[in-house]
Amino acid sequence: MTPKTKLACRNVWKLYGAASDRILQGNPNPSAQDLRAEGIVGAVRDVSIDVNEGEIFSIMGLSGSGKSTLVRCLSRLIEPTAGEVLFDGVDLLGASEAEMIEIRRHKLGMVFQNFALLPHLTVLQNAMFPLTVQGWSKSKAEEKAREVVELVGLKGREDYYPRELSGGQQQRVGIARSLVAEPDLWFLDEPFSALDPLIRREMQDEFLSLQGRLHKTIVFITHDFDEAVRLADRIAIMKDGEVIQVATPEELVMNPATEYVEEFTRHIPRSKVLTAGRLMTKGGAGAGAPVQQSDRISDVAERIITAQDPVPVAGPGGKIVGSIDRHAIAHVLFGRGAGE
């Protein structure tokens, strides 16, 4: 069963600088040096990725690595210098202005790092905004907006203005607003970076539970590897405009493509990344209630360690596929692979 590709981009480039249009014509694949020699900033360089339907796809990289630029190319807020962006198989870059407006109105949603709430509108009016520009009647838009405001836990604050809310609450409004038009594809550009660590954690949990109900296709940008590991099904790591590796968190930790990636993963406790399926002994039987193959070790470690016998591991269908014992867990938690 191969998952359906929702959004794909092929060889996308975004160059800034005087001669940025011309350089690709002469040389379709200029190196970083070539660009620098021409005085061009390569914000996004030759990026090709596929985002599957229903997954959380995270784009991770340090500040200035081109994450925002890439996601704006994907949503065509920025016109890429070269490349293709396919949304449901249709080339977005070929869409006319009017078509783009239609696609954005009905199929795309976006959450911003600094919330981007309209200061002169209340919570409810902010949440309604995407519907009002579509020309919905006020009463219907309001009804719909109340639903999403309640969904993000802001019931009772509909008439507050953004300035009267805390950062976390403001971002909830941003999330509610991006969901009100029921988009298929949901972009989040460092949605929690501007929040305190504690609030950030809480918002991440709520985000996961929200996704558990909505099953959107999500492109999630972050510069925090911890966050990417916690939330993402797959992660693309960017550096200087290039995507270095696209993989699941587990693979990134186990098989980093470059030293740069390894550097990132070094500080991540292995138990938070590895799954039971990876550590189990295949075919072994165990005793007691099984753990799931996809469970992260950190979530099931206590149970396995306190159990006398190996614990069975269940596959996706509930069938027992192997077992896992306390030694394997102890090795991950305390051994060389525990991370620093």
Binding site: L77, F112, Q113, F115, L118, P130
Partner: peptide
């Protein structure tokens, strides 16, 4: 005006 707000406006599908 905050460029994020402009981005938001365009993402909401404003004319």
């Amino acid at each position: 005006v905050d460029p994020e707000l402009v981005d938001f406006g365009r993402m909401a599908g404003t004319t």
